[in-house]
Design a protein around this nucleic acid. Structure first.
Lengths: 207, 207, 207, 207
DNA sequence: TATGAATGAGCTTTCATTCAT
DNA sequence: GATGAATGAAAGCTCATTCAT
């Protein structure tokens, strides 16, 4: 029993460390975070961290990878083929992005870390792009294009930059990162304003 | 000669130090930047930096203030009353924002620093909000509202969140911060796509 | 073997550091002593010192406490009830104090440090008072009072300030601190002069 | 006028600096006192201090010399031949010492500095001995010896260490340096206890 | 005389990393 | 696997001292 518990413990260690690493890195950034804080929060000693990871940078990279995994999964599930009228799909997609922006503090802080440390972890960025932005952008693009073909949407130049659709959500996100509680935004109204603008911008005009 | 030179030198020192500070902070972030690097780049010794600034944090805050001053000025000039049809004003404003996003690497890096260090310098954030975002948002809001009154624009819910208009420009900016040269964007086409979407989204529909 | 050695080493480290700290602090005073000197003398690196103590002040306080412990012990043993005629007790007590003043360079330097840094470590002073001066003064007082009751001693006003009895010993001590080898004193004759004066001052007069 | 004022000013500068130096050194000790603090307190800039004194050590030595000058004068005046019965002279001398110990905070702090820095300024110590202790000890010795010859005092071994007479005053002084307001002493009663002990110790016995 | 900008050595403290146990 | 004592390379900051003005 104890052995099993110990083995289970062991298997969970790396995850616990990365979890702790996220909290600390999110709070202080890469350079200002001490490995000791991570270890302490994870309930292990510094030495133990070095058993699982080469060094601080490795912890950081592994943490980003680990912490963004659930998001990958969610995205994959969400983007799985779900046909429907293009406008409705746009709305549903944008709502999904807003949901992440609003509810998922982790993703928010991850974004902050990516922006802050982008220069020093470019491969990490590319990996994140491949796993998160890429699929999203591709899907958006497909919706925009097929919507245009079907005559549900205007053939707008935004087809070339489908990520612009999530611009308001990004703005919402950054806003919260910058001002937090100090200048709160109503996410629901923010979303409605955004989708209103986008749909009016994309629906074909009668004239 | 020499006298004037020294006096002139002295008057310029703080500015030179802040200039150097910007380069270093932008490259490595607050925590990872060593005061010695700043001093060296400014051509002085560490001690000299401490003659002008209390400590590293003060250097940072002063740097942000100093470096964003030209932008403040530009904004103030730009936003000075320039009447015209609302759609044209929107286009002109958004182009202005894109110009900054595209050409002004300093502002871009400043934004990165603000996002990265937001938790530790909240007053600084508020100051920047007051000087940069604030006037912008207010002006946008006025344009949107008066455009609606004049019948030039739709009375859209985005009136409540006028900053959404610059969402694409922010996205452009962050994109470059994240991927730099690795995934370049054509700023001109990006802007055109954005303004197309926004104007179509705001122009009143005939039907 | 090696294991034991390491464990033994570890247990002794703090003591070794404090020992080294004493030597250095005694030589140069608190402010002028560099932690590096202490570390070097203790045969460890600076970092190791910080493993055991919070900072330089802590080292100082811990050092004083540690270094005065043997004296506490000695005092406690010495002051344990040892009845006898008051004059003999006075003589024996004063000789004890002189012995410390003469032989114990550590106590002497400790006294110097206490005087020098009294303003900055008042709690430390109070602690020392409680452990060293206090018991002494109390004991002297008791001897003076009971000696007077027994008629062995005069009921002199010095009963209120029994520490005056050790005034000559303090003077001897300070003298050495100030002039060291330059103006040597013969401790034996000094003591005899002191006890002669005190006893003549306290013995009851026939007339 | 202004020139005269300026000249007067100039002449007073060194004194003002030493005055300020005393306050600062007394508060923090030699090593922990910054030349800037001294300059600031004296109302000049650091550079000015270097105009009058070679370096920090010179300031210290000069300060001690300057600050102990009034005491020298007082002592000289006081010790000028004033014949009288030996016991009365003893009393008067000891009272004088107590007065200094009690009223003259400067002398007290000077003593602290001497003790603290004795190792590093031995010549200074010797100078102080020559000017302060020396005359005192000599005078005391003369009184004790002549008193014995006259039959007013016992021929006690304390003649060899006349400074023991001021032991209680030194003790009073150190006590205040160590405990200040925390454990106050009544100077008057302290003195009376001391002189009582000493006189009883020195007056010849009838038997 | 006096200023104060500037230097540079040096100090305390921190922390990623190592390694004997 | 895990600990934690220990290292050593910085890093932030201080301050005595200098010197052009």
């Amino acid at each position: 029993m104890a052995k099993g518990a110990r083995a289970r413990r062991k298997a969970e260690r790396p995850g616990e460390i990365l979890e702790a690493a996220f909290e600390e890195f999110a709070q202080r950034g890469f350079a200002a975070t001490r490995l000791e804080d991570i270890a302490e929060r994870a309930g292990v000693t510094r030495g133990a961290v070095y058993f699982y990871f080469e060094n601080k940078e490795e912890v950081f990279v592994a943490m980003v990878r680990e912490l963004s995994r659930p998001l990958h999964a969610e995205i994959e599930v969400f983007l799985a083929d779900r046909p429907g009228p293009a406008p409705e799909m746009l709305r549903s997609y944008l709502r999904f992005v807003y949901q992440i922006a609003v509810d998922d503090q982790r993703s928010r802080e991850l974004l902050r870390l990516l922006i802050a440390e982008a220069n020093w972890f470019p491969e990490m960025l590319d990996e994140q792009f491949r796993m998160v932005w890429g699929p999203f952008v591709d899907t958006f693009q497909k919706v925009l294009q097929e919507g245009a073909i079907q005559g549900e949407l205007r053939a707008a130049p935004v087809q070339e930059f489908p990520e612009q659709i999530v611009g308001p959500a990004l703005l919402f996100n950054i806003w919260i990162l910058l001002f937090g509680e100090r200048k709160p935004l109503d996410p629901e109204r923010h979303f409605e304003a955004a989708i209103d603008l986008i749909l009016h911008g994309l629906l074909p005009r009668k004239n």
